[in-house]
Design a binder for these strands. Structure first.
Lengths: 120, 120
DNA sequence: CAGAATCCTATACGATACTG
DNA sequence: CAGTATCGTATAGGATTCTG
């Protein structure tokens, strides 16, 4: 007979709250200031650097580059460089990135829809 | 005939990437360094300060207080103070918090399960 | 166009000490 | 027990400039 709190224990292995749990690293990348926004912006889309820069309003060159490198390093984002002049670079989600964004999107949508009630 | 990118537009109202969109504030609270961890720790549980402190390994007094105040201010967390000595304070999710965590949990679970492949 | 490099600042964060 | 207060630092993050 499951006690309170067991939903968590059923879903999660032990030790997920440990300081050295590898999930903390990934969580930090995804939940970084611009991580969620960039990932959601790439949902079902292929965007160039400049498009991404314009879409995610307020992000600086430095942070966009840093965020994209981090997400690329984790295998969420694919960077496609066309060897032309002027440079043409396209960003898109990898299969793993699509898995992640599929879970991110309901959360993001809920926050968007409820934000006004929450902070207003 | 929906083009690529329309899944996003179907789910989300316009302007969600605008710098002054209120969702940014809520998103920042939830995805703060300790926000997700505290929220998930409270899933289906009522925890006292010291239990929360021990559960979310590595969090400092200051950050736990700050995170809880932020989440309480957004209406995700309920703070129940028993007027006894020594003090007894219990933290739990509000209905709104439970809505949020219901969406957070699949994401968190996926990250935990895949973290090893991603950073390993 | 797509960044890298540099510089600078705000603040997020942690450690410690203290208190009703 | 459940915090607050103070202090110090690291680093996240922004503005600007430069380049293949």
């Amino acid at each position: 007979m499951p006690a309170s709190g067991d939903r968590l224990r059923q879903l999660l292995p032990g030790g997920v709250f440990e300081a050295n749990c590898p999930s903390r690293v990934v969580l930090d990348h995804v939940t970084s200031k611009w991580g969620v926004l960039v990932l959601v912006a790439l949902d079902d889309r292929v965007l160039r650097w400049s498009e991404l820069r314009r879409t995610v309003e307020g992000v600086s060159d430095k942070m966009l580059a840093q965020t994209l490198r981090s997400l690329e390093g984790d295998g969420f984002v694919h960077r496609d460089v066309r060897p032309v002049i002027p440079p043409h670079v396209e960003y898109s989600l990898t299969p793993r990135g699509r898995e992640l964004v599929a879970l991110l999107l309901p959360l993001f949508t809920w926050i968007v829809e409820n934000a006004h009630d929450i902070v207003g």
